[in-house]
Design a protein around this nucleic acid. Structure first.
Lengths: 205, 205
DNA sequence: CGACTATACGGAGGATGTCTCCGGTTAGCA
DNA sequence: TGCTAACCGGAGACATCCTCCGTATAGTCG
């Protein structure tokens, strides 16, 4: 089990005391248990269950993670890096605009549906700076801006397309797909409409 | 307080016994209380609180409405009629395609965000025939099909646009707008993208 | 009108989940 | 080895969902 400290999460790495050995152990066990439970039961899985499965009291869980979102935030550590990588890959592949978008949006939805209920949580936190996962939303928005911005620079998108709105739109698709249990492939037609809606010269089918 | 019986909800009106007078009274009080609580606290408001506010025991609530969605269904009685009317009005206004869609989508979002959390519930029930509000989703889908189908008939949309997908897409926008607390006006750019994505000759801005 | 019965009421209480408080424990250090 | 700040853990207060069943009453029939 790779030790993962809160320090790694913090933006400014200064001033964050290292955890005591036992605290670090429990922290890691909690994150692992949370990953399990959220995978099984979705983002609304029981927190006491997570504590129990980590072999730890509820108090310990709440000390490390005051809110549910703090816990979700913690288990999205490496997630950010993957999102970033995918957005860069999409730009660098240098495919035609349509394919770039198809690829990136598919990735985006994959990341948004990390587990059941995740898409809804991310969507909700998108405009709420006080949310513990707000930072993750910004990551997503930045990654999306990288791809959309690139296509804007090459004049392949209509004028006045804001990446923020595109981000919201795709979040919406992910949320609906997640909530109604339809697969990523089944969501493709919706992505197609959005792509047609932002591409400049989108040949009338 | 206008008496509203479950009979009015049922599709087939045969075989539904009329309620006893006291039962009818409680039914109405529960619907009124639910309307209040859902308006205040959203679709996740406490059911016990609704019972209490109706001056009725929890048992009575659960007898009339086995699930939360049955209750939500009940207080959307006249809602269906309004949705229907708006879709017909949109078609009959006979405006240019873009304006027709702008108008209809705005109405649609208004109906989907009946109260906080409603959009998410409707989105989730869209593909779940066992849900008590599935029927309401079909209403919505039919109304949307009326508008989108009309524009398809007049060849104003791209080929292969399925009204079902459009419906999902707009539900997604409504869900995100609701969850992140952005207003209907702020959602307009997203609707614009969708409209551009389905209109045949959508001039590149 | 009085009695009978199907129907409906209501609230006590079990099950589950969230979150806190504080007496007891232990890691790290001198 | 002993001290202390940091940490643990679980009892329990509180909220919410939902059920069960003894009690009450509306509607009906003689």
């Amino acid at each position: 089990m790779v030790p993962v400290t809160p320090a790694e999460t913090a933006t400014a790495d200064e001033g964050v005391k290292p955890l005591r050995a036992d605290a670090q152990r429990n922290y890691d066990k909690l994150v692992a248990a949370a990953r399990e439970v959220f995978a099984e039961r979705g983002a609304e899985g029981s927190l006491d269950e997570i504590a129990k499965r980590a072999g730890v009291g509820p108090g310990t869980l709440y000390r490390h993670f005051p809110t549910r979102d703090d816990l979700i935030d913690a288990l999205m550590r490496d997630w950010s890096a993957r999102v970033l990588a995918d957005s860069e890959a999409a730009v660098e592949a240098d495919l035609p605009a349509r394919e770039t978008l198809e690829r990136w949006f598919t990735d985006l939805i994959k990341h948004l549906t990390l587990h059941r209920g995740a898409a809804a949580k991310l969507s909700a936190a998108f405009d709420d700076p006080s949310s513990p996962i707000y930072r993750k939303c910004q990551m997503l928005a930045d990654a999306n801006e990288r791809v959309v911005g690139h296509l804007t620079d090459t004049h392949e998108l209509r004028d006045n397309i804001e990446s923020r709105q595109v981000m919201r739109l795709v979040s919406g698709i992910a949320t609906v797909a997640d909530a109604s249990g339809i697969s990523t492939e089944e969501a493709a037609p919706m992505l197609g409409i959005v792509i047609d809606g932002i591409l400049r010269d989108s040949a009338t089918s």
